[in-house]
Design a protein around this nucleic acid. Structure first.
Lengths: 143, 143
DNA sequence: AATGATACTGAGAATCAATCTCAATAAAAA
DNA sequence: TTTTTATTGAGATTGATTCTCAGTATCATT
């Protein structure tokens, strides 16, 4: 499914589905969650597949363009990507102590998104909502 | 007020309020909104004041630590800061066509923040909510 | 005022993610 | 087969940010 979308997207742009791009797509989809380009690159090498860092970066940009993945946020250590296609939209809580991420879905938030856009005459395409604070475990550790 | 806070913060850490830091603080506060380190650096030089880029970066980190300013987001062109102390918390809509930012306040969102944290046993400290899409003007341009 | 201890500064080097260059290669079209 | 065009990877480059470190400024104590 995803493969078909990607190939179609490439074809429309007169671009090719090479074995490097196939490898990058495959490993990207294997994440079902957050990942970063360097880990993806290493994962590809571990498996014996081949693709350079340059190709990884180039292909991740293509995958973003065609909507299979998204950039979640930029950190001091680089960009975090997420395999979003076919996954329900969710938002994040980020623990500023242990760095853990909690995902959650909120219908109320989706409704609020719509309401706010209507009020401001803004055509919202998507959003990110991130709550920073202390997760359950770290609240205990703190004292 | 802000100056007093910054000086107190520095004193607690056994650090000093130098003229470079004073210049950086002053120009930072003059923004009342978003800015980036390079613009700040240039603004300082224009005024005849003196501070190196290194000092700008170092001081912005201090100002974040003591809560006078915040990092809003990292972009491909660097980090966006915001002078937040004494400013009502707000969130952003970002036009992906013209790059313009719309600020808005939402009590509903604040309530939702609280509700979500309670549900997840998360102690939320702050949040960012960003809606990306097309602003009023760009919606017209698009057709 | 002199001394010693400590913090601060700026210039340039270093870091690191991300992009670019470009010659070699592969795939598609003619 | 020949021509055209897209892709690749190694390494260079970029650009934001941080680090280094020698020289300077500030503070505390005599």
């Amino acid at each position: 499914m995803e493969k078909k979308i990607f190939i179609g997207f490439l074809k429309d742009k007169g671009q090719r589905f090479t074995k490097e791009r196939a490898a990058i797509l495959q490993k990207t989809l294997s994440y079902h969650g957050h990942f970063d380009p360097e880990s993806l690159y290493l994962k590809i090498r571990e498996t014996g597949l081949k693709a350079s860092r340059a190709s990884v970066y180039r292909t991740l940009n293509l995958l973003c363009e065609c909507g299979l993945i998204d950039k979640v946020r930029k950190t001091e250590h680089g960009t975090i990507y997420e395999y979003t296609f076919g996954h329900k939209h969710h938002d994040h809580m980020l623990c500023i102590m242990c760095g853990n991420t909690i995902e959650f879905c909120s219908e109320d938030l989706e409704r609020l998104h719509e309401g706010l856009c209507t009020k401001q005459n803004f055509r919202g395409v998507n959003h990110t909502f991130e709550i920073r604070g202390y997760c359950k475990k770290c609240q205990k550790k703190r004292r």
